[in-house]
Design a protein around this nucleic acid. Sequence first.
RNA 1: GGCCCCGUAGCUCAGCUGGAUAGAGCAACUGACUUCUAAUCAGUAGGUCGGAGGUUCGAAUCCUCCCGGGGUCACCA
Length: 616
Amino acid sequence: MHLYAHISSLISDFFSDELKLEIESSKFQFTPTKKEFDGDYTLVVFPLVRHMKKKPEECGEIIGQYLLERSDYVEAFNVVKGFLNLSLSTTFWRESLELVSDPEKLTYPDTNKGKLVLEYSSPNTNKPLHLGHIRNILIGWSMYRILQRVGYEVIKTQIVNDRGVAICKSMLAWKKFAGGETPESSGKKGDHLIGEYYVTFDKALKEEYEQWQTGAEAEKIFREKNDGKIDRNAFFKKWKNEYFNEKSQLGAEVRQMLRDWEDGDPNVIALWEKMNAWVYAGFDETYAGLGVDFDKTYFESDTYKLGKDIVEEGLQKGIFYKMEDGSIWVDLSDSGMDQKLLLRSDGTSVYITQDLGTARIRYEDYKMGSMVYVVGNEQDYHFQVLFEVLKLLGEPYADGLLHLSYGMVDLPTGKMKSREGTVVDADDLMAEVVEIAAANVEDRGAMDELSEEERREAIRRIGMGALKFQLLKVNPKKRMVFNPEESVDLQGHTGPYIQNAYVRILSVLRKAGDFDQDHLSTQDYFRISGDERELIQMLLSYREVIERAAGEFDPAHLAGFSYQLARAYHRFYHDHQIIRAESEAARNFRLKLSVAVAAALEDSLSLLGIAMPVRM
RNA sequence: GGCCCCGUAGCUCAGCUGGAUAGAGCAACUGACUUCUAAUCAGUAGGUCGGAGGUUCGAAUCCUCCCGGGGUCACCA
């Protein structure tokens, strides 16, 4: 920021002129002055005390005096303990307002940080998207906007897990129990329909298992394998996987279907294609509702085979090793990790195999320098392993890999559990927030001048703004509690609160009549208030906020910024007349300031993927 | 059990690259709409920053240990 640079360079001059010392400018710490003290910006002098060999208070006085004499911006100063509080001149505030009024200054010059592949959705095709996916997708979308802003060429991708046991379960259940039900025949969304049959399968399996437990074979296994520490129920709960793999009729059918699929059986492939197509149509609808899209979709059914080739290649190079049973492993104990299976003994691929394939295909497609995966923190270890293996393989992008790991979303009642039916469905949730927004709009009448369509769009933006802000205001790394009731709150620390500040500004500008933003004279305005200075300070800090959000991969910084800016504006708006200001110069100053605030609010929310309503 | 993450007001979260008396929102209570949109503003109340040591002029922030919660260590994804 230019003020910090300006003051820093003066302080550097002070040290070299007066004390013949070269001090790194990173030693100069500035912060906006706390409300309870006089001043606008504060220099922390403690780190400099050592070099000056004087008491903190004296150092502050000396530097303050030096700055007062040399800078047109510094108008007064005071020292409290080791803090030098600087009060800045009207010249500074006026010039700063000009600076932040320049829309160019909100965006970045053409810096080019190269290509970055961003994977921010990785759905399974056996069930619809839920609240957890929404957090994933919103974080990813926001990071796309932010990374793009700071100069990356971002390629937005998703990886669709369209193969494997899970989808076969849905397929088998549909074949057995659906009676030919389709999205068209039932009016159900495709992904929801498939999800229902996934549940159907689970129920059928459970019944089969319970039935089997009453038989003689079950009794024998229980007696032989139980170590006597747990009761019968607990034993069979633990044994469920073995049952599915070794004894279950349904399990056998699913595995047969999986083999048929791998062998390319036309009937199975046709069913698979049909059902996946339903799911994709459903996903597309959900994505559209969230306002996100992808440059490229990868399917694991396309990439898993290449993964096998890569494992073979690593084996040839001697990076991996083969066990007697034919399975292939990598030893990562040098990096503090374990042995890790890369290919099963029967030659089929595991989860990580296809990730290897996907990574390389992406490089062939885009030659990116870096790749970011937005995936939940339950997979932290998986990505450590994946990245280490890619490094061992010498992949050219291996040093540019990042797992943007986000925490799980809990409900006030605890974890979401599909078995207990507590999973919050993405489509339901979106519909609900928009509905609540609509109900609130009806009480207000602020949208009377809008057409039916404009009104619907504004309501959608308010509802989705509430939902998105609620999820993005929390640091991605942290596990969070999501209260569905609070997500539709429109007051307080929410998206609509920020939208409201913006809409108020639009309203003021409408009523102000025509004016030329670039030629508003503010020269005669001298009594710039604390509220106004605070707003300008915030606007000056905006770029740092964006850079921090990009550097830390944390959109919550932008959420915090936009909220604080909106709050400061609401206060300013309440305490100051704009259109009927005390003077022409004051009116001009405040109009200009309002325009700049509106631009920053809109821009910061847009980096979160939230759009502004025109009225509310 | 090994490794990783988390613990701040009744609830949800900021603050964590060390800096002044730890901040917001919700919930509770009080006040402000004939004046640019009250989805707003102002105020009251609410804290052993999980605990104990240590480093420092200064610790919610850094280090060690302990307690509590979660995740992960599959020929699952």
